[in-house]
Design a binder for these strands. Structure first.
Lengths: 307, 307
DNA sequence: ATTTATCATTCCGAAAAGTGGAATCGTTGC
DNA sequence: GCAACGATTCCACTTTTCGGAATGATAAAT
């Protein structure tokens, strides 16, 4: 006798995580009757109900909750055996990844990421796809893009995502801007006009919402630009204020451009940059290696997320 | 896509351990074609041959050898999930185990073992079956005995066994025996007659073989007895030498019986006491709990094996 | 060099297992 | 009391797995 079918562990993990036969079925792409039968087999094998009726819903039994960690680790470890084999051959592979990210990310991460990847896989290639105005999920779904790096996009529900780093906006002005002469307050913020960076022409953002809701103030957007490049070259001749994320500020030579920066005296929500991918790549060990390498590199370059 | 069938891990483990499709098939009680197909699926899943032809035989690939530890641990951990559930209910169980062991073992281990078992399972019961002269394997095969503890028995090949403790023989004589007047040598050993303890009337043993082969000496067996009990009561009135294992010597009150002990000046093979059970109990979590408890108790009482 | 033995793989028909849709059951909200 | 929702059971069909027979590969024996 060989004991129970170990493949039931895959079902067990998802059943406990979802606490629902229907959701578990959907997640593993089988019918509800099929999932129900798997649950029945698990109940026999473990002599435990696993999921118990809790009013209209189901909830996991104490025993099931107690072993979830071990089940998750088991399934993960079992799948990583496959990766052991696949990754053993990285040095002989020549994978090409298409990654879509905005210019800020490319500027700061592209080179260190490529260096880290090539360390283990010398013939690895990256293609940085240009930003588009369509929803970011579609190319992931169709497989035209392997990985997407964004911060504000709303992704389709099935798209997987992982936070890479946390950022916040800083104000950029010319070096001797009058706003710097005294401690900056919300009131002094709105004395000057602003530049807004938005590919879709969106002028309003978190700064506006906080000013209005917490101080009853309104800032003026003098113009909206699709990217910051030409602004940082010429804004030193004006009193305009340009909000930029830290990732950019760290990247440009502020002093050389005749500029200075300041922290907004506001409680702004942070910006969580993430990487996103389609679930079909979940079990692709080479794709996982890419994600893990990008995650590690982004933390090295940009510092850990404080969350 | 759910990834490969995790149940293949059971086959993977046995295939790597046996390095033979036939032996693996036999061990898991499937046909050779069935095992061959499982191997084929493993080869696809891992993109590795797993077993490669090495002349007439097969041997495990480097990759397979490299992951065997992890595979064994995975299968063990997966099966132990079942035990987690089963053992969670020990306090409410009332299992009865039939254990066959010789009197020496019963005398020294029965009470501590029962105490240790009852600590976790208050209604647990032990039945110590009397020694018999038939092969010890048969009752295990037929299920009449759950566990057998022995030392010298040859068991059937499918019987599982685990060493419990290591022992050695000591000489027992009356308190003022002349052999104790000077350092004991092989030559002085054979000046006196011996008692041999053997249920099957076997007079010769390792002592005889070592004396003959290393010193060209022969000891005289004055009599053979089926157990040592009556001898230790009456032998103080004679110059007979009674060899007994340490487990007995530690158990009886040597001084109160007017006796003394000595170490044989010979390089004798040690006695490995073991527990034995039928493989059908391998996956029985309650039976495994019994074995593990017996193992732990025997080490506590008799000291660890130096091996 | 040929034959024999052993072990692994492939083929094939039969048996077993698994599937999803439909029907049914149990619980809660309205 | 009825409707909605989710889980389970039933049923016919599909897929997978099984073991015996046949085949292939290798080394030992003759």
């Amino acid at each position: 006798m060989r004991g129970y079918d170990l493949d039931l562990l895959r079902f067990l993990q998802v059943l406990i995580e979802e606490e629902s036969v229907s959701l578990a079925a959907r997640r593993l792409k089988v019918s509800e009757p099929a999932m129900s039968r798997h649950l029945a087999k698990l109940r026999v094998a473990f002599a435990d109900p696993i999921l118990v009726q809790s009013g209209r819903r189901m909830s996991a039994s104490a025993f099931a909750v107690g072993i979830l960690d071990r089940v998750q680790e088991l399934v993960r470890a079992a799948d990583s055996l496959i990766e052991t084999r696949a990754l053993a051959n990285l040095a002989n592979m020549a994978p090409t990844f298409t990654i879509r990210a905005n210019d800020l990310v490319v500027a700061s991460l592209a080179l260190p990421l490529l260096q880290a990847l090539k360390k283990e896989c010398p013939r690895c290639e990256l293609i940085w796809a240009p930003e588009i105005d369509d929803p970011a999920s579609d190319p992931l779904r169709h497989g035209r893009v392997d990985l997407y790096i964004g911060a504000t996009d709303v992704m389709k529900p099935e798209i997987r995502r992982q936070t890479l780093f946390r950022d916040h906006m800083q104000g950029v002005v010319r070096k001797d801007h009058p706003i710097l002469a005294t401690p900056i307050t919300p009131q002094s913020m709105v004395l000057y006009d602003y530049i807004s960076v938005s590919r879709r022409g969106r002028a309003q953002g978190p700064i506006d919402w906080v000013l209005r809701n917490q101080y009853g103030l309104t800032r003026r957007i003098a113009m909206v630009v699709p990217n910051y490049h030409c602004m940082v070259e010429s804004m030193k001749n004006s009193d305009l204020i340009l909000p930029l994320p830290g990732i950019v500020v760290d990247h440009i030579s502020v002093a050389a451009l005749g500029l200075a920066t300041f922290e907004f005296p506001l409680s702004l929500p942070s910006i969580d940059a993430f990487q996103a991918w389609h679930p079909r790549r979940d079990t692709d060990p080479v794709h996982r290696w890419l994600r893990e390498t990008l995650f590690r590199v982004s933390r090295q370059i940009l510092g850990p997320c404080t969350q």
